[in-house]
Amino acid sequence: MKDFTKGLKSGVPIGLGYLSVSFTFGILAVSYGFEWWQAVLISMTTLTSAGQLAGINIMLNPCQYIQMLVSQLTINIRYSFMSLSLSQKVTREFSGLKRWLLGFFMTDEIFAVAANEDAVTTKFFAGLTVFPYLGWTLGTFLGAVLGSILPESVMSALCLAIYGMFIAIVAPKAKESKSMLLVVAVAVTLSCLFYYAPVLNAVSSGIAISVCAILAAVFGALLFPVKEGCNDD
């Protein structure tokens, strides 16, 4: 139980962050013409930010099933790497069906918090997922139902919440280790190239993110391999 409670607590800030991010998703979905329950259902079954955003854009057109599949696979391929990464950190009892069930909750932030642990037990991971899932669902609902009430200035500011959270995960690591700082710098530089450079900026953002992340991680793995026998630096 101690592990579960510890996980619950670690999930609170993620849950709060998700509340504001999914709020924006709820507003957007309704403004696109979706019913509130459709927005909530998408959030409850998918639990991802970038993928859902791209998803509702595609859903506006009829029958683009292949496009939907390709966009989701490219945007979400990072989850495979995260799952693979975390599969190396979980304790021995965290196996079989538990992985099939809890794998559903592998988001960027849940992964990042779990990856900061020395060893991840089933109970800790299960606890960790509770508030993020509630926050993501509730936020979508609130955004869809009462998003239009909030003034534009507040909405605009809330849009930065998710990125603030990303920075809070990356910056401390980059401060601790020079190699991580360099690897992150490579990722950002590549990402800027894909955003601004002609030709490259024609690549869809989902694919661009995966390509930048993979190249930068390969750069890091080649130049600054982690020490043998430990998972962390």
Partner: peptide, 8 residues
């Protein structure tokens, strides 16, 4: 080890 941070 690097991939989550490069993604974010």
């Amino acid at each position: 080890y690097y991939i989550p941070y490069t993604v974010l």
